[in-house]
Write a protein that binds this DNA or RNA. Structure first.
Lengths: 138, 138
DNA sequence: GCAATAGTTTACGTTAACGTAAACGTAAAG
DNA sequence: CTTTACGTTTACGTTAACGTAAACTATTGC
């Protein structure tokens, strides 16, 4: 349908548009809604997604890439809102943020070490490759 | 049993020792063996783990922290061995290593962005906290 | 001798995160 | 008008990664 060739970004998306964009199924998107991670509006019965909802979806998928469960992603997304709470709630939020950071730091360390090991493995494989070629075509 | 207070590192571990060290259950360790990720020796019927097996377990758990499936962790662990194959196998291995690297790079980007967003959320929460305190104890 | 401790195998149960299919509504295109 | 494309709800199925429990063996300490 090519849209209206408008200059502004579309302020709403269909479920299949989002599914295509992020290479997931509509089932997945509805599942996230079921789990309370998305709350699209409805035009009649049909779901309509705002840019904000689209961002939430992106956050969920980024969480997935980092190995987060949907519950963890929900927690993280909840950190973005005004945190309209009292002192205790805010303090808990701050602590929670700290924990997530530690988690990410650990992941950073893990990635660093794994990266190093991959380099070593690559080097070994290349050495083996050269040898292997010498043997196969003398 | 305190071991023999020897100077050298123990060259073998029991299943419960490893479970305690890594804070997992013996069931989990046996499960990894079932899936072909570990192959401990046996003294009679009892499993005996070498330091090498212990390292493999560590690699599995690091993979878990990065959100890898056991199959993915197995693939990565397999990259460590001599890759005693022919040219084709080695080339596939090299490509495979490249893919894993890209994966890790994506994770790095994801972590970076999330870290940044956590900082913002933290700042907002601290601001809200100060305000909240002013209101509660005027 | 016997209870406690650590090990084993076998097998059924559970949870998360969807997949798959049925059965239906609706709107545009030919 | 009916096919096609897209949407909906409802519900059962599936896979990974273990948990849990039963039933058994072997060793150790008292």
């Amino acid at each position: 349908m090519k849209a209206k060739a408008s200059i502004v970004e579309p302020h709403s998306y269909s479920i299949s548009e989002l599914a295509r964009e992020f290479d997931i199924t509509t089932r997945t998107i509805r599942f996230y809604e079921d789990k309370g991670l998305l709350k699209p509006e409805r035009r009649g019965q049909t779901r309509v997604y705002s840019p904000e909802e689209r961002v939430r979806l992106k956050l969920i998928l980024r969480g997935k890439r980092l190995g987060f469960s949907l519950d963890e992603s929900r927690e993280i997304i909840d950190m973005y809102d005004p945190a309209h709470g009292n002192v205790e709630q805010l303090q808990r939020l701050l602590e929670h943020i700290g924990q997530k950071r530690e988690h990410l730091c650990q992941q950073l360390r893990d990635i660093e070490s794994l990266m190093g090991e991959l380099e070593e493995a690559e080097a070994r494989a290349q050495v083996a490759l050269v040898r292997s070629r010498k043997n196969e075509s003398p």
